[in-house]
């Protein structure tokens, strides 16, 4: 992690070091005990033909080669996934921030509204969701009836290969609750004095938003951006529940492909290789975001990390 301000002291203080290690010790133990082995194992699998039950054979880079050269769905899936990330992540963040700002107002019954807005996130992957989503977006569904009533024709929201991915993205945007909560918590952290000072200076609403709200919220935006990106790249629930990858593989996201290869086709070795490719892609995007962060995030600790 880069930081803006040159560090005050470059040497590590011994007691600082010791305390730091002690505080993160639980994680170190947890990582070694529960996470390291599964990670290494899946990395090893990616060079084998591991099929869950049969003894595995090393196949070198075959899995990686096959993925890039002869898998008929790999590129389709990767393209759909990137497109999906580009739609769902900004959509969700903007919506969540906007709603959080509205819900941050001092209104009566605001507690009630906040709870209502969190409901979709509690519903999660409930079986009711897939039933409802089909009702809403079918040819004779609610959305089309509404569009017809205002004079717009019907669209095949989930049935058309061109629209299905976007429609599915709506489900994820709709479950914006956790981002909203984070923004709300972040908004509450902004000292009121700053706003008062801005008001005294006669700053307009837009200026207050861009000069105070956004910078003060930037650590939370940053966190939300990274997490939503990671989750969107790994998205599995929405396509699995609603479209199972169709029509014409237009919603065949990476997560669905992985799942099918691993547990339907029993090609765990191959799925592991695909996972590590996805891991590298996510890593790349995340690293870029981290690298960019000194230019747009603001920390009260002076950016020292």
């Amino acid at each position: 992690m880069r930081h803006r301000r040159p560090t005050r002291q470059l040497k590590y203080r011994a007691d600082d070091q010791r305390a730091g290690y002690l505080y993160i010790l639980p994680w170190i133990i947890g990582f070694l005990a529960f996470q390291l082995y599964p990670f290494l194992a899946s990395f090893v699998y990616s060079f084998t033909d591991f099929s869950i039950l049969r003894p595995m054979k090393f196949v070198g880079l075959d899995n990686y080669k096959r993925m890039f050269t002869s898998d008929r769905l790999f590129w389709t899936s990767l393209k759909a996934t990137v497109l999906y990330v580009l739609m769902a992540v900004p959509g969700k963040l903007i919506f969540a921030l906007f709603i959080a700002m509205v819900l941050n107002m001092k209104l009566k019954f605001i507690n009630f509204f906040r709870t209502i807005y969190y409901l979709p996130s509690i519903l999660g992957g409930s079986v009711a969701i897939s039933i409802l989503w089909r009702f809403l977006f079918s040819r004779n569904g609610t959305v089309n009836s509404f569009l017809n009533s205002i004079g717009i024709g019907s669209l095949d929201w989930l049935g058309s290969p061109n629209l299905a991915l976007g429609t599915m993205g709506l489900l994820v945007v709709w479950q914006f609750g956790s981002s909203m909560v984070l923004f709300l918590a972040g908004l509450k952290n902004i000292p009121q004095e700053l706003y008062e000072a801005a008001r005294v200076d006669g700053a307009g609403r837009i200026k207050t938003f861009t000069k105070i709200t956004l910078p003060m919220l930037s650590p939370v935006i940053f966190f939300n951006l990274i997490m939503q990106m990671i989750n969107a790249f790994k998205e599995f629930n929405a396509p699995y529940l609603i479209t199972q990858g169709g029509p014409l593989n237009s919603t065949y996201l990476y997560g669905v492909m992985l799942y099918e290869n691993a547990f339907t086709y029993l090609k765990m070795g191959y799925a592991s290789a695909q996972s590590w490719v996805l891991f590298s892609i996510i890593m790349g995007f995340t690293a870029l975001t981290f690298k960019s962060s000194p230019y747009w995030t603001y920390y009260e600790d002076g950016g020292e990390f």
């Binding site: 599964p38 997560g255 992985l258 592991s272 996805l278």
Partner: peptide, 10 residues
Amino acid sequence: MLPNEVVIIP
């Protein structure tokens, strides 16, 4: 960042 699917078994 690593997808869950492939770490389930290990």
